[in-house]
C-alpha cells in the first residue's frame, strides 16, 4: 500500500516518488522544468522551511506556499 505525504512532511533520509504537484499552472511548470514533476524519485536531505531535497543528482532548496503542494508516495524500506 502506498503512503502518500506532502513533501514538506518527509523526514530526513526518506525516499519516495512524486505522485502529484498542485499549484498554479505557472508554478507547476516551473517546478517541472527544474526536474520536480510526477514520477520522479526524491529524497529528503534536510527537512524544514525551506527544505533541501535530492532530485536525481541535483539538490534543490524548496519552500512551498499555501497554494502549492507536492505529494510524495513514500518508498517503504524492508
Amino acid at each position: 500500500m502506498e503512503n502518500i505525504v506532502p513533501l514538506e512532511l518527509m523526514a530526513a533520509g526518506e525516499v519516495g516518488h512524486v505522485v502529484q504537484v498542485d499549484g498554479s499552472p505557472e508554478v507547476v511548470h516551473r517546478l517541472a522544468e527544474m526536474g520536480l514533476r510526477e514520477q520522479v524519485r526524491v529524497m529528503m536531505v534536510q527537512p524544514g522551511r525551506p527544505c533541501i531535497v535530492a532530485v536525481g543528482d541535483h539538490r534543490l532548496s524548496l519552500r512551498m506556499d499555501e497554494k502549492a503542494e507536492i505529494f510524495v508516495a513514500l518508498t517503504m524500506d524492508a
Partner: peptide
C-alpha cells in the same frame, strides 16, 4: 503578490 514558492538549485 502571493510569495511564490521558492525553488533554487544547490550546485555541488
Amino acid at each position: 503578490s502571493e510569495t511564490p514558492p521558492f525553488v533554487m538549485e544547490l550546485p555541488a
